[in-house]
């Protein structure tokens, strides 16, 4: 009887945790007053990001996980994944998948909680310890950064009802780079994403 009770309590707690995570993993869009197609800068873990890739919109969508962190070979990669262009439907021919990855060499963490160390950090993307990659419509691009930075304005370890949930990374990015021999500008970049156990990879 006691065993059953314990099992039932365990299942209930697990289901509660799952339902809790589910809502925190959804994207909540609050438009920027000046650039209404971009999400407003926030620090609530709304799982959104957005920027202008030259004049095209690069932003999160409801089909891709907006952010992942990969820790590998003594470096940490922050990947933002969404689409390029006005928000199209996933099945639309206009849908162009795009991801942007910032590689931070020398920054290593064994689990997502270590990302809190990035709080209030400005990373110069021209630094040799950094690299920026993009993947646009299946085409991998190594970007030659001319200028720009990645700012993690706030990194917060989020607890919900006293349980560790994720790390919220909020900040800005913007840079100029050479892509396929042509200069491009990534401007007005901002992100507010939650990285939990499901979004953190180490291998």
């Amino acid at each position: 009887m006691k065993k059953h009770l314990l099992l039932l309590t365990g299942i209930s707690a697990f289901l509660l945790l799952i339902s809790c995570e589910q809502e925190l993993e959804e994207s909540v869009f609050h438009p920027d007053p000046d650039h209404p197609d971009l999400p407003e800068y926030s620090e609530w873990g709304y799982n959104t990001f957005g920027a202008y890739y030259d004049r095209k919109l690069f932003s999160y969508n409801d089909y891709e996980i907006p952010a992942k962190v990969i820790s590998n070979n003594g470096a940490t990669l922050l990947m933002l994944k969404g689409s390029l262009g006005e928000k199209p439907y996933y099945s639309s021919q206009d849908y162009i998948e795009m991801s942007l990855s910032f590689m931070l060499k020398g920054f290593v963490t064994n689990d997502y909680t270590g990302l809190a160390m990035l709080n209030d950090t400005i990373i110069d993307l021209t630094n040799s310890d950094c690299a920026v990659f993009a993947r646009i419509d299946g085409d991998s691009i190594g970007m030659q950064i001319l200028s720009g930075n990645l700012q993690v304005k706030k990194a917060q370890h989020l607890f919900v009802d006293n349980q560790s949930m994720n790390i919220i990374l909020s900040g800005y990015f913007g840079f100029q780079a050479i892509v396929h021999g042509e200069p491009i500008t990534m401007s007005y970049g901002r992100f507010d994403v939650g990285i939990g156990t499901d979004d953190f990879y180490q291998y």
């Binding site: 809502e23 809190a116 370890h157 989020l158 607890f159």
Partner: peptide
């Protein structure tokens, strides 16, 4: 869900919702 997330506390790099 039927609940809201209430920002209970924010200290340093720790944020607590209820």
């Amino acid at each position: 869900s039927k609940y809201l997330y209430f920002l209970y506390q924010h200290t340093g790099t720790t944020t607590e919702y209820l």
